[in-house]
Design a protein around this nucleic acid. Sequence first.
DNA 1: CGACGCCTTGATAAATGTCAAACGTCGTGG
DNA 2: CCACGACGTTTGACATTTATCAAGGCGTCG
Lengths: 193, 193
Amino acid sequence: MGASIRYSRNEEIYGEGEPAGYIHKVVSGAVRSCKVFSDGRRQINGFYLAGDFFGLEIGDEHSSSAESINDSEVLAVKRRALASLSARDTEAANLLIMLSGKELNRLRGHTQMLVKSAHERLASFLLEMADRLSGDSLLELPMSRQDIADYLGLTIETVSRTLVSLEASAAIEILAGRRVTLLDHSALRRMTA
Amino acid sequence: MGASIRYSRNEEIYGEGEPAGYIHKVVSGAVRSCKVFSDGRRQINGFYLAGDFFGLEIGDEHSSSAESINDSEVLAVKRRALASLSARDTEAANLLIMLSGKELNRLRGHTQMLVKSAHERLASFLLEMADRLSGDSLLELPMSRQDIADYLGLTIETVSRTLVSLEASAAIEILAGRRVTLLDHSALRRMTA
DNA sequence: CGACGCCTTGATAAATGTCAAACGTCGTGG
DNA sequence: CCACGACGTTTGACATTTATCAAGGCGTCG
């Protein structure tokens, strides 16, 4: 059911406006979904990790593009297959409903982050990633600072400075590369507001 | 199918965390869906006008509360009715899929506004409202400045000042009360970025 | 008229963005 | 193994945007 495709770092999986013939599932690696505005600014709508579905559309075009963040393996499932299946099979229909529901909740969470301060956005982001990556306190972030900035609606400099400030307050520790340790979960949760 | 209920200005239709036994449809009037944070700040997730569905949940609790903005009439449809219907009837299942899809797209648009500047947010907001209220250039906004501010993630003062500035640039005209005329659609669209 | 709610305006502070440069890390090739 | 280069990240000085606090105006309804 569906074909598995490998992508290397920063490859486009599909582009904005392309026909949305498939829905996708991350098998391994990480994917970002994004939109580029006319003036070059970029917004990242979501990060998708192993097990996550993405590219769900109601219309017949993709409303965002999707790119691999790292070397990744992605499963593509033909939408028509699901749609015609759901015409008879309630199982498939319910799967679609559940997937849209998950995406809805994810988006609601994202929207909530965007109305808060830089500190709150980073705290929420780190907690979300800790939750999704492993549940562990040691995070190995797959994405760059620029990706984080575009996801949170901040500049890369603000992301960097805010992380340093969180480290100064002993809430986290920034290790080499993209590794971060969450030292004080409750402090971070408190910042979430 | 479902009961129609009347609400007067600023009445709660359902609260955050309450069991989501019904999905709702605005018959007339206007509704806002919102969340109040622990520190008192409020986020408005969406405005719903005549014909719009709201209160769609995947879990069994409402993730936001909903309140009437004006005197409104709201239809409540039992969720179980739809769910059990969709177990047999593909019609109902497809309705649910379509509704989630619409809500998804609305949320994506909202998320996009939130990463932009105050001018861009107001321009997008006004165009969205023009589109949804009548398609006409003369808007009769149902919501207060505070509602707009909480929807756009700005303060009421910034909303007010930004509107004045848009008027100064001849893009809009602010009339008495909550009436606004869009004078230069293309200028507004350009600001949308 | 007066009171209330809502909106605007002004002065100032705080948060975030911008531009520029330095620094680290990591992979590559000598 | 070390030196180098490319890329991503941090830091600094400064500009801009937005928030905050406080006051004033304006419409509406008793």
